[in-house]
Design a protein around this nucleic acid. Structure first.
Lengths: 344, 344
DNA sequence: CTGAAAGCGCTTACAG
DNA sequence: CTGAAAGCGCTTACAG
C-alpha cells in the first residue's frame, strides 16, 4: 500500500490539490459546503493522513514543540535529570499532555549549550521551546534571539531576555512553611538549602523564611542556613551538619522534598525520631513524600499543572496571542506527619 | 539574518548544491578532497545547519524516533505514566541519551490506540518506534504492518508480530529473590503481584518464585499469592491482606518496588517492624528504594541501560543491521535492610 | 469559489 | 568527480 497523498485525495474527490489543502486547513469560507464534503469523504475513504514533514517545509513551521532538559553528569557518566529528579518527569508529563490536546507533538532532549538549542530549533523548525533547569547568563544571552517563543520554568529573569515564564509562589510558600513551624512553637528553625548559590528560587524561599522569622520577632542569628547538594545524598549531608553543629535546632524548613527525604532517612538510621526529635517540612510535594515514613509535611506545588500551563503559554505565544508572559502558580501547605508542636 | 540554506553554502564554496549535499552526506569518495574542504569551510563560515525537515521529505526518513507511552487515567483525569511511575522516566532517559549520541532526535507521546501509532509514524515519518507499557492483542495486530522497526520492552510475544524486544531475566530474578528469602530460613513466603492477570512479566516472576519454592521442597500450598493494584496504594492494600489473612507469613517477594514501598509504609504506620515482623524483597531497584526506611532489598534491573539497549537495537534495525531481535538484560540481588533471617 | 504553478530545502539518478 | 533537473508532499499568492 503506497502512501496516500493529497494528490490521491484530490483525484478521488475530483478537485485540485490546492482545494484539498484549503478545506483541510479550514480556510473558512474559502470553499463551499459541497466541495468540503467531497474532500472530507475522500479523506476518510482513503484514510488520508497529512504529511507533517511536507507541511512543515512548506509553511516553515512544524507543529513540534521542544522540551529541553539540562544535561547532568553523575559520577562522570552522562545522566539525565529525567532519571534522577521526579520534578522533571512530572512537568514533562504535563507539557506533553497539553501539547497533545492542542495538536502539537513534542520533541524531548537534553541540551548542553545555547548553540545546541539554536541548532535544534533550526534543524527541526520547532515552533516553540520550553527550557527546564538552570543555565548561566551566557546560555540565555545566546538564545535570546531565537525567533520562536521560549518559556522558562521558575525563572526570575525571564523578561530580561524576552522569554516567558511559569513559576511558583516561592517566597509565599517558604513563608507558609516557616509560619507553620512557628505556629507549632518552634523558635530554632534551620533553613536547609542547596549549595550552588545560583538559584534565584531558593533565594526567594530564603526571603520567605526570613519574613516569617522576623515577623515573629525572632532573631535571625539563631536561625542557621545549612547548605548541601540539592539531592537525596545532600539531604543526608545536611542531616549530619544539623546533628553535629546545631544541637539546639528543633525544626527545619528544607527547600526541596528530595533533600528532606535524605534528612529523614539519616534520622531514622541513627535512631532519632521524626518528628519528635526534629520537625521537618519540605517543598514540592513529590509523590515520594507519601511513600516515606513518616509522610513528609510539605508545601505543595502542582507540578503537573505547571507543565500544562507551560504548554498553554507556549502555544498561545506561538499563535500570537498576547497576554501574560509570566504566570505564578499558587502553593498550599500539606500536612502529613513530620511536624509536631514543640513541647518542653 | 535570513536562514542559511545549502544554496548559500554552494554559492560561497563555488560548487553546486548537489555537491554540497554529497560531501555533507559523506558519500565517501564521490568528491575529491579539495572540494570537500571548500564546502566544509563554507559550512563553518556561514554556520550552516542542515534543515532536517527538507531532508526528511526528500529522503522519506526523519532521523526521528518515537517513544510511545501508554495513556493512563487516574481518578478519571488523564494522567501520564511518566508522572506516576519512575520506571518509565528512567527508561525514557536511557533511550533519549543513546539516540542523541547516535544523532537521532526523539519524539515522546502517550498513545491511545494502534491507529494513533500508525498516524504518528506516517505524519512524522518516524524512522522507528519504541513502545512502552502493556497493550492488548488488537493493538499489536493493528501495528504489526507498520513499515518501520518497532521495539518493545518486556514483551514475551514480540516475535509473534515481528517486533524486537529488550527484556529482563524475570524468571531468574524472581528465583534469586525467593532463594534469598529461603536462605534466610523463611518457609512461609508470600508472592505479591498485580491483579491485572495480563502481565506476562509477572507470570514469569511467579514461575521463578515457584521454582525456588519447589526446589527447596516446600509445599506450594503454604505459599499464597496476594494480588492488588500495581502501585503504591496497591501495596498498602496488599499489606492489609497480608495482616488480615496470612498471619503465618514471615516474608514476601513483591513483583515491583513501588508495591513493596506501600507495604513498608503500612507496616510502619501500624507499628510493625520491618524486617523483624516481615522480611520483604522487591524487584526493579528504583531510586526510591534507597530513600525508604528501611532501605528496600530488591532485585536490580538497570533500567537506564535498558533504555540504552532499546535505542541501540532500534537504530541497528533502522540501519538494516541484522542480529538479535531479542535482548535479555541480567538482574542482580541488592541487599539493603528489609530482609532478615528467621529466628524463632 | 477553484486550480495551475511556483516554492519550501533537501536528495538522487543521470548525463557529462 | 560535478552539476542540472526532477521530485519529495505540502501551501500560497495569483489568475480566472
Amino acid at each position: 500500500m503506497a502512501k496516500v497523498t493529497m494528490k490521491d485525495v484530490a483525484k478521488r474527490a475530483g478537485v485540485s490539490v490546492a482545494t484539498v489543502s484549503n478545506v483541510l486547513n479550514n480556510i473558512d469560507n474559502k470553499s463551499n459546503e459541497v466541495t468540503q464534503k467531497k474532500v472530507l469523504k475522500a479523506v476518510k475513504e482513503l484514510n488520508y493522513q497529512m504529511d507533517m514533514t511536507a507541511r512543515s517545509l512548506s509553511m516553515g513551521k512544524s507543529n513540534l514543540l521542544g522540551i529541553f532538559l539540562p544535561e547532568v553528569f553523575y559520577l562522570d557518566r552522562p545522566s539525565s535529570v529525567l532519571k534522577d529528579n521526579p520534578f522533571f518527569s512530572e512537568i514533562v508529563s504535563g507539557i506533553e499532555y497539553e501539547a497533545r490536546m492542542q495538536g502539537y507533538d513534542v520533541m524531548i532532549t537534553c541540551v548542553k549549550s545555547d548553540t545546541h538549542v539554536k541548532d535544534l530549533v533550526n534543524k527541526r523548525m520547532l515552533d516553540g521551546v520550553a527550557i527546564l533547569g538552570m543555565h548561566d547568563e551566557e546560555f540565555w544571552e545566546g538564545i535570546k534571539n531565537i525567533p520562536v517563543p521560549i518559556v522558562l520554568i521558575d525563572s526570575y529573569c525571564y523578561d530580561k531576555y524576552g522569554f516567558c515564564n511559569v513559576g511558583t509562589e516561592d517566597e509565599q510558600g517558604a513563608y507558609l512553611a516557616t509560619k507553620h513551624l512557628l505556629t507549632l512553637n518552634h523558635t530554632n528553625i534551620a533553613f536547609v538549602t542547596d549549595n550552588s548559590h545560583v538559584s534565584e528560587v531558593n533565594y526567594q524561599r530564603h526571603q520567605g523564611y526570613l519574613r516569617a522569622i522576623k515577623e515573629s520577632g525572632l532573631n535571625e542569628e539563631q536561625c542557621p542556613v545549612i547548605e548541601a547538594d540539592l539531592n537525596f545524598k545532600g539531604g543526608i549531608m545536611a542531616g549530619h551538619k544539623l546533628l553535629n553543629s546545631y544541637a539546639h535546632i528543633t525544626a527545619a524548613f528544607v527547600v526541596a522534598d528530595i533533600m528532606a527525604l535524605g534528612i529523614i532517612k539519616l534520622m531514622n538510621q541513627i535512631g532519632k525520631s521524626i518528628p519528635k526529635d526534629l520537625s521537618i517540612i519540605g517543598f514540592d510535594d513529590l509523590s515520594v513524600c507519601e511513600y516515606s515514613f513518616p509522610g513528609l509535611t510539605t508545601i505543595r506545588q502542582d507540578i503537573y499543572r505547571k507543565g500544562i500551563e507551560v504548554a498553554k503559554l507556549l502555544i498561545n505565544k506561538i499563535n500570537g496571542k498576547d497576554g501574560n508572559t509570566g504566570i505564578i502558580l499558587p502553593v498550599e501547605l500539606i500536612l502529613r506527619e513530620t511536624t509536631i508542636p514543640l513541647t518542653d
